[in-house]
Design a protein around this nucleic acid. Structure first.
Length: 491
RNA sequence: GGCGCAUUCGUCUAGCCUGGUCUAGGACGCCGCCCUCUCAAGGCGGUAACAGGGGUUCAAAUCCCCUAUGCGCUACCA
């Protein structure tokens, strides 16, 4: 699909989640697009909590949403916690302002009272559907006579307020999809005030966007048809509709909307699983957005720099864990040993002195694609007592050629080096290779026993790290311990 | 059912607006090779797509129409 949206200037955008669950990846993606547009256009981003559904909303989720957003590096200029000139930013605290807008619409004849009960509506709807007719609200209450209305009022019948959808064609201006035109006759007279006096979602959103002076509404594709209703409301309220950008929805690998069935779906889940926030953001951005060249790795700052709505595609977006894993690995590579060690500590149950831990982490880091992968690394070799070998290692050792001489060479070489640093460690390995060559051995003849004798295991980190961890002397001790083990075994 | 949106390798996408340079490019995954003390990582190579059908045109992934499929909306949910 072709999208050559012009650059957006000074956009005032909002991210409006309902705190009915932890921040979903899909919501995070919406938030990211909003943030990118705000930051990239020199505008502002508002965090607005749509918490009118008291049953399902909770403070805990509210906290998770804000923490998750901050964790992935998104901030906001106005919101429930930071305030701003257009507050309050919690919809539950704005309930007082909607009725006046409904009243205005009522006065102007753009809305009307509907006394139909949900039961009556259901009945008429079923009847219509039963006859194979499309059901739209039948405007029964729009046609009420004065007497009928007076009677209903006298009975104290509760009423909802319906928007009177005008005739004509409605156009939604969408950055990605151009002008989406829908005939208003497709839309029925939707409710803007419930019979209990609370504003409906549609009214609340539009009033909020008007009063908060939102210029660009960036949200999921599922709201595209709702946008038609919203444009109608903006117009009826005398406001210029904002520009819309309805991005595609995030789907699971089977093509259905990403949900719990697909596994972890919330940002905090991914934090706990050991993903880096910059990797997650990078991945979410790359779903539907492309810089137009082959670049894939971006820090959040670079995304702001490179992002343009013209690079956003309108097509579906399927969440692919493999690619996230790869990106996470790329971002982990960018961390220093020290930084990685700091991050990995939370996922580790063993404890080492800091210095040792850093070496240990450095030695296994290329085997990790998430921070949590530290648990799967063979760190236990570092706590294994000297001279204790696995059965498999013992067997490998025993069938190794020129074993005695090789072990002797190891000890004598290690003993030559009192200092312990990277250069020394690397030097030792080079020297061992050299020695092997001179004896007409394959490198393996001495290096394989090295690994087995020092760690007691057949798999583990590069030899250089082993030297750094125990020091050359420590390695010599461990080889000697292994020699004793072998002797005992012979007896 | 009605309306809307979408449709390039399995997945994310480049290309589409401004038709030819596309025997369709990149990335993930997968497969193979190399490297190698182990496991990895890394390097190199391979696999694989314009949903289908009609037009328009000298020429279509690119423009138009139809069909199919997927998704969404169609609530006194948000």
């Amino acid at each position: 699909m072709i999208n050559r949206g012009g650059d957006i200037q000074n956009a005032r955008v909002r991210f409006a989640p309902s705190p009915t669950g932890r921040l979903h990846l899909g919501s995070a993606r919406t938030a990211l697009f909003n943030w990118l547009v705000a930051r990239g256009s020199g505008g502002a981003i508002i965090l607005r909590l749509e918490d009118t559904d008291k049953e399902r909303s909770s403070e805990e989720f509210e906290r998770d949403i804000m923490e998750s957003l901050r964790w992935i590096g998104l901030d906001w200029d106005e919101g429930p916690d930071v305030g701003g000139g257009y507050g309050p930013y919690r919809q539950s605290e704005r309930m007082g302002i909607y009725p006046e807008y409904a009243a205005r619409l009522l006065e102007e004849g753009r809305a009307y009272r509907c006394y139909c009960t949900p039961e009556e509506l259901k009945e008429r709807k079923n009847a219509a559907v039963g006859e194979g007719r499309a059901w739209r609200y039948d405007r029964k209450c729009l046609g009420l006579t004065e007497e009928e209305r007076a009677l209903l009022e006298a009975q104290g019948r509760p009423y909802a307020v319906r928007f009177r959808v005008p005739e004509g064609e409605v156009t939604v201006n969408d950055v990605l999809r151009g002008e989406v035109k829908v005939d208003a006759s497709e839309i029925d007279d939707f409710i803007i005030m419930r019979s209990d006096g609370r504003a409906s979602f549609h009214l609340a959103v539009v009033v909020d966007d008007i009063t908060m002076e939102v210029t660009h509404v960036i949200r999921g594709d599922d709201h595209l048809t709702n946008a038609v209703r919203h444009v109608l409301l903006f117009t009826a309220l005398g406001a210029e509709p904002p520009m819309f950008l309805h991005h595609s929805l995030l789907m699971g690998i089977d093509g259905t909307k990403l949900s719990k069935r697909h596994g972890a779906t919330s940002v905090s889940d991914y934090r706990d699983m050991g993903y880096l926030p910059q990797a997650l953001v990078n991945y979410l951005a790359l779903l539907s957005w492309s810089p137009g060249n082959d670049r894939e790795i971006f820090t959040p700052g670079e995304l702001v720099e490179e992002f343009s709505v013209g690079g956003v595609s309108a097509g579906k977006a399927i969440f692919d864990l493999d690619k996230l894993n790869w990106l996470n690995r790329q971002h982990m590579k960018a961390l220093s040993d020290s930084e990685l060690t700091d991050l990995v500590i939370d996922h580790l149950d063993q404890s080492f002195p800091r210095q040792k831990l850093e070496i240990a982490v450095a030695s296994v880091r290329n085997g990790m694609e998430t921070l949590a992968d530290i648990e799967k690394q063979p760190l236990d070799i570092y706590v294994q007592p000297a001279g204790k070998l696995s059965e498999k290692s013992l067997k490998e050792l025993e069938k190794s050629p020129d074993l005695k001489e090789a072990l002797g060479l190891l000890v004598s070489t290690f003993r030559k080096y009192p200092s312990n640093d990277m250069a020394t460690a690397e030097g030792i390995v080079v020297e061992l290779r050299q020695e092997a060559k001179e004896r007409g051995w394959k490198a393996k003849t001495v290096l394989w026993p090295f690994r087995l004798a020092v760690t007691g295991q057949t798999v583990g980190p590069d030899l250089t790290y082993l030297i750094m961890f125990w020091g050359p002397g420590g390695c010599a001790d461990r080889v000697e311990a292994t020699m004793r083990t072998l002797e005992e075994r012979d007896e």
